[in-house]
Write a protein that binds this DNA or RNA. Structure first.
Length: 268
DNA sequence: AGCCAGGCCCATT
DNA sequence: AATGGGCATGGC
């Protein structure tokens, strides 16, 4: 049964939330409409006149996915004291950090490394079409078991390039450590994620933030480095550590505001 | 056409 | 711990 939820859009801007680079499985169906897929589930979103309508057969799942219980008005107001990111916060207001599936996020962000968003989306779509369960009008994300059926050559033929071997290995290793990692504090979880092939510092931070909801992580890619770069902050590691310390428990959200502002305005 | 993309692996120091 | 070369593919 399809259920419906109506949410004020001031702190849930659908376009920003989906197009800010944190998620790859969505489609724009109309000017104000999107479809979002997560694992084997889907939902529809429609934003108009100050409200978002969320429709799905799995309304509880997507209510959690969009983190609707978190108070972004309160969080945003607390962040206002950092005046150096005032512009970024205003520009990105309405972005929510998605609570994506841990496994799907891990695979997706391994694919994302040194890649562009269009290609990332198309590769993930091919994975779904070839090994995902057929649903009504779409394909599910392949289960870990199904993903393991791909040979390295088959993965390469999807356009994965040198990442094919990372996916091949990590979709095997991940299932073993998944439950263990998810219970660990962020720092320890990060150490474990870094052991996976194709997972470096930046990808690990994306997995922690978008796949485990850990706001105490601060992914730094080429855009983020440009945004923060200075005499002292001249490496991703230094930027990340500085911002984690400064923005504390909401660092991950700050990171998304900064990233969105930087990329949307193409600030080189 | 050539640079770049939500970087990582691996050897070397 | 830190640095640097090499790297598949395709979007723009």
């Amino acid at each position: 049964m399809i259920k419906e939820l109506k949410i004020p859009s001031k702190y849930f801007d659908v376009k920003k939330t989906l197009e800010c680079g944190q998620v790859f499985r969505y489609k724009k169906t109309n000017e104000n409409s999107y479809v979002v897929f997560s694992l084997d589930k889907k939902c529809e979103l429609y934003q108009k006149d100050g409200y978002v309508t969320l429709k799905s057969e799995h309304i509880d799942y997507f209510s959690n996915y969009f983190d609707l219980k978190s108070d972004y008005e309160k969080i945003t107001s607390e962040l206002k004291r950092f005046c150096e990111i005032e512009e970024q916060i205003r520009f990105g207001e309405g972005i929510r950090i998605l609570k994506q599936d841990f496994y799907e996020a891990t695979i997706s962000f391994i694919i994302s490394a040194n890649n562009n968003i269009k290609r990332i989306q198309s590769i993930i779509e091919k994975l779904c079409e070839q090994k995902g369960e057929k649903k009504d009008g779409y394909y599910a994300f392949p289960t870990a078991e199904k993903l393991q059926e791909f040979s390295i050559e088959e993965l390469k033929s999807l356009g994965l390039g040198y990442r094919a071997e990372y996916i091949y290995q990590s979709c095997r290793d991940f299932v073993i450590v998944k439950d263990y990692i998810s219970t660990l504090p962020t720092d320890s979880a990060r150490v474990q994620l870094l052991k996976l092939k194709g997972v470096g510092p930046k990808v690990a931070d994306c997995i922690l933030l978008f796949g485990l909801g850990r706001f105490d992580s601060y992914p730094v890619d080429t855009w983020m480095l440009k945004a923060h770069k200075s005499e002292e902050l001249n490496t991703p590691k230094k930027v990340s550590e500085y911002c984690l310390n400064r923005y504390g428990k909401y660092a991950g959200l700050v990171q998304q505001f900064v990233f969105y502002y930087q990329r949307e305005n193409k600030l080189k």
